[in-house]
Amino acid sequence: PDLGLTQLFADPNLIENLKKNPKTSEMMKDPQLVAKLIGYKQNPQAIGQDLFTDPRLMTIMATLMGVDL
């Protein structure tokens, strides 16, 4: 199971919303991170391994779920 990750990354406004959010806007200036996020739309399971190697993803996930870290 993808634990709902498919829906989190399926939002067509995902990148724009993250660019507008004060907690994630600075991160979204990294083209490699943006490319990763776009890739998760097609393969949400890929985030599982990346969560352990890129701490920014935890902040992004929390933001998408509405959790304040």
Rank of each mutant, 00 (worst) to 15 (best):
P1I: 10
P1G: 14
P1S: 10
D2Q: 15
D2C: 08
D2E: 15
L3W: 09
G4F: 09
L5C: 10
L5H: 08
T6E: 14
T6M: 13
T6F: 14
T6C: 09
Q7M: 14
Q7L: 09
Q7T: 13
Q7I: 14
Q7Y: 06
L8T: 05
L8S: 03
F9D: 01
F9G: 02
F9I: 07
A10W: 09
A10T: 12
D11W: 02
D11K: 03
D11P: 03
P12V: 09
P12W: 03
N13S: 10
N13C: 07
N13L: 08
L14C: 06
L14N: 03
N17E: 09
N17P: 01
N17G: 11
N17S: 15
N17Y: 13
N17F: 15
L18G: 00
L18C: 02
K19G: 07
K19P: 00
K19Y: 06
K19L: 11
K20A: 14
K20P: 00
K20T: 13
N21T: 02
N21M: 03
P22K: 06
P22M: 05
K23S: 12
T24Q: 00
T24N: 01
S25I: 06
S25D: 04
E26A: 08
E26P: 07
E26H: 07
M27W: 07
M27S: 03
M28E: 00
M28I: 05
M28W: 01
K29V: 04
D30N: 04
D30G: 00
Q32E: 12
Q32K: 11
Q32A: 14
Q32S: 12
L33R: 00
L33N: 02
L33G: 00
L33T: 02
V34H: 03
V34P: 01
V34C: 06
V34K: 02
V34L: 09
V34E: 06
A35P: 00
K36Y: 05
K36R: 11
K36G: 02
L37F: 03
L37I: 14
L37P: 00
L37M: 06
I38V: 08
I38H: 07
I38M: 15
G39Q: 12
G39P: 01
G39T: 12
G39H: 14
Y40K: 00
Y40R: 00
Q42Y: 13
Q42F: 12
Q42S: 14
Q42W: 07
N43D: 10
N43T: 06
P44F: 06
P44E: 04
P44V: 09
P44C: 04
Q45Y: 12
Q45G: 12
Q45K: 03
Q45E: 15
A46L: 13
I47N: 07
I47F: 15
I47S: 06
I47G: 07
G48K: 12
G48D: 09
G48V: 12
G48N: 14
G48M: 15
Q49D: 11
Q49I: 13
Q49S: 10
D50G: 05
D50W: 03
L51M: 15
L51D: 05
L51I: 14
L51R: 04
F52I: 14
T53H: 08
T53I: 09
D54I: 01
D54N: 02
P55Y: 12
P55D: 07
R56M: 06
R56V: 11
M58Y: 12
T59R: 05
M61G: 03
M61T: 06
A62W: 07
T63I: 15
T63F: 08
T63L: 07
T63V: 15
L64R: 01
L64S: 02
M65N: 07
M65V: 07
M65F: 07
G66W: 08
G66Q: 10
V67D: 15
V67M: 15
V67G: 07
L69T: 15
